[in-house]
Simulated assay, not measured.
Amino acid sequence: MKAAGAVLWRDADGDVEVAVVHRQRYDDWSLPKGKLDHGETIPACAVREIEEETGFSCVLGRHLRQVSYSVKGVPKTVDYYAAQTVSGSFVSNEEVDLLRWLPIAEASELLTYEPDRDVLAEFARLPADLLVVLLVRHAKAGKRSEWNGDDDLRPLSDAGWRQAAALRTLLPLWAPVRVHTAPRVRCVDTVRGVAEDLDVEMVEEARLSEEGYWPDPDAGLVRLLEVAADEGRAVLSSQGGVIPSVVQSLAELGGLRLEEIPCKKGSTWVLAFTRPFGTWSTSDSPSRWPTLVSAHYLASALARP
Rank of each mutant, 00 (worst) to 15 (best):
M1R: 13
M1I: 12
M1E: 13
K2A: 03
G5A: 08
G5W: 00
A6T: 03
W9Q: 09
A12H: 15
G14T: 13
D15V: 11
V16E: 14
V21Y: 03
V21H: 02
V21K: 01
H22S: 13
Q24F: 12
R25E: 14
Y26A: 13
D27L: 08
W29R: 10
S30C: 13
S30Y: 10
S30E: 11
L36V: 08
D37F: 14
G39Q: 15
G39L: 14
P43A: 03
A44D: 08
A44S: 13
V47Q: 00
T54D: 07
S57T: 15
Q66N: 15
Q66M: 14
V67Q: 09
V67C: 09
G73W: 14
V74I: 15
T77E: 15
V78K: 01
D79Y: 12
Y80D: 04
A83N: 01
G88F: 10
V91Y: 11
N93R: 13
N93W: 10
N93K: 10
E95P: 02
V96I: 11
V96R: 01
L99M: 12
Y113E: 09
V119H: 05
L130I: 07
L130M: 11
V132L: 10
V132D: 00
V132H: 03
V132I: 11
V132P: 00
V133N: 01
R137P: 04
G142C: 09
K143G: 05
R144H: 07
S145F: 07
A159M: 07
W161C: 07
R162L: 08
R162W: 04
Q163G: 08
A165F: 04
A165M: 06
L167P: 00
R168G: 10
P172V: 03
L173R: 04
A175D: 14
A175H: 14
V177P: 02
T181A: 13
R186D: 01
V188H: 12
D189T: 10
V191W: 01
R192I: 05
G193N: 05
G193S: 13
V194E: 01
D197L: 09
L198R: 07
V200Y: 02
E201P: 04
M202D: 03
V203W: 05
A206W: 11
R207Y: 06
E211N: 08
W214M: 05
V222A: 07
L224H: 00
L225P: 00
E231W: 05
G232D: 08
G232K: 09
A234V: 04
A234H: 05
V235C: 03
V235A: 04
V235H: 01
S238K: 02
I243Q: 02
I243G: 00
S245D: 08
V246L: 11
V247T: 01
V247R: 00
E252M: 13
R257E: 10
L258G: 03
E259S: 12
E260I: 13
G266C: 09
T268W: 00
T268A: 05
W269L: 03
A272I: 04
G278Q: 12
D284A: 10
P286I: 04
T291G: 06
T291M: 14
V293K: 06
A295D: 07
H296A: 12
H296V: 05
L298T: 01
A299M: 12
